[in-house]
Design a protein around this nucleic acid. Structure first.
Lengths: 151, 151
DNA sequence: CACGTAACTTAGCCTAGGCTAAATTTCAGA
DNA sequence: TCTGAAATTTAGCCTAGGCTAAGTTACGTG
């Protein structure tokens, strides 16, 4: 039951602004997380990470990959030499591990609430970058609780 | 078959690329949705939507708001005259209504799985733009089921 | 071993979305 | 009604992330 028509939608302005700022921050780190996660997967499963494969899997041109890799190098996440394969720095490996764990948690959660595996993967790709630690904890609790029930 | 540890993380390349493409698409529309939703809220609760309030609540400069509003006008979502308040076109109102309903569904869902109201609002701001129709339907089912249990 | 093709980089362009500083316009109060 | 402060716009700049086309490099194969 609400009061009258349309009360209480707008939070205090500064709080509101903080939400959007966090949002923009998450958007900024999303690309880096997607790239290092993909590079880690390629290294693990294919033994090497080549720009051409990143381009194919990201659905983006090779030139775009080159530019993005340049930023990731600048930010200390990726190591490479001109015309050679890609590797992760320690920081990059750590980011990839966190991203992967988070990705899998989100996928498992989405499947638990009734999504099919493919849709869960698709949605996780977007949702994983915008779930706070508290939300992820809630997902984990939900999964744990559900396992208890299943016995 | 290839090595054994770490199988089955990478989907087919074209499918993978499609996920990221959807992702980029969602990112593109997120700003528009946030702006029209905020404009609708301001119109409803304050009686008018001024750029200065959008700037304050988005945590962004007025110049940025002016530029963004220009794009929303170009895209047929917002109507305004120079130096005057902002209004939504029919298309803008429709987008705002959808965005608001989706936002509230996500908030209710997050609260249902154990988040406090403030965190739910924060997370919803990011998650609402990246949840597919199927995911939203799953959220709704979850809430409906939960109400049944509560009786 | 050289050579052609595939992979990668470079150059140049674009849009969205940020910023500050400097106009310009509106509007309320003296 | 005039005027100054607040709101808005404009100008100019920046970064991320897209693109294509053209140039370079690496490498497998004949």
């Amino acid at each position: 039951m609400r009061s009258r028509a349309a009360e209480r939608t707008l939070p205090p302005a500064d709080e509101h602004a903080a939400r959007f700022a966090r949002q923009r921050e998450a958007d900024r780190s999303a690309t880096a997380e997607d790239y290092v996660e993909l590079i880690a997967d390629l290294l693990r499963e294919e033994g090497e990470a080549r720009a051409v494969d990143l381009a194919r899997r990201m659905g983006v041109s090779q030139a775009t990959v080159t530019a993005t890799i340049g930023r990731l190098q600048r930010d200390g996440l990726v190591e490479t030499k001109p015309y050679r394969g890609l590797f992760l720095t320690a920081a990059g490996q750590e980011m990839a591990a966190i991203a992967k764990a988070r990705h899998e948690l989100v996928v498992r959660f989405l499947i638990a609430i009734g999504l099919d595996a493919e849709t869960a993967e698709e949605d996780a790709e977007g949702l994983e970058h915008h779930a706070s630690e508290k939300a992820l904890a809630a997902f984990a609790r939900f999964l744990a609780m559900r396992e208890d029930d299943a016995g």
